[in-house]
Design a protein around this nucleic acid. Structure first.
Length: 132
DNA sequence: CTTCTTACA
DNA sequence: TGTAAGTA
């Protein structure tokens, strides 16, 4: 999950992005003006694009080539974002549930240390995590 | 030399 | 969208 940091790192100036996307600087700046992308800026006001920015531009390009206008691209991007957020919440819910189950198991072992067939948490491998 | 903004076609 | 002009 630390990959996103790298993907969002402002790395390339517009000249590189031009070669990467085959878009003209004019088009890229116009898309920014239309709110389709928000590249970072250097102290000298130079645009710096991240990998995500480039991916986004490639998507925009392919959509535009299919006849989608600026407004249409905005909707596509908005929907993509909504889908991503929905997926994140779904995974988040799953993780919370599994953690809850883990806590239940640990609690049962602590409350019923003498149950046959189970290892005591205060003995064996995990005992080093407790003060004696 | 590259990039930026603004303006006009 | 392309291009020219004047900057940074």
């Amino acid at each position: 999950m630390r990959d996103n940091i790298r993907r969002n790192m402002p790395l390339f100036p517009i000249g590189i992005v031009t070669k990467l996307t085959e878009l003209t600087p004019r088009q890229i700046r116009y898309y920014e003006q239309q709110g389709l992308i928000s590249p970072a800026r250097t102290e000298g006001n130079q645009r710096l694009f991240s990998f995500n920015d480039v991916d986004r531009l490639l998507k925009i390009k392919s959509w535009m080539e299919k006849g989608v206008n600026i407004a249409g691209v905005r909707e596509m991007l908005k929907q993509s974002q909504e889908v991503m957020e929905a997926k994140k919440e779904a995974e988040k819910a799953k993780k919370e549930l599994s953690e809850q189950e883990l806590r239940r198991l640990l609690k049962r072992q602590l409350i019923h240390p003498g149950r046959p067939g189970e290892t005591h948490l205060t003995r064996g491998e995990l005992s080093r995590f407790f003060r004696h």
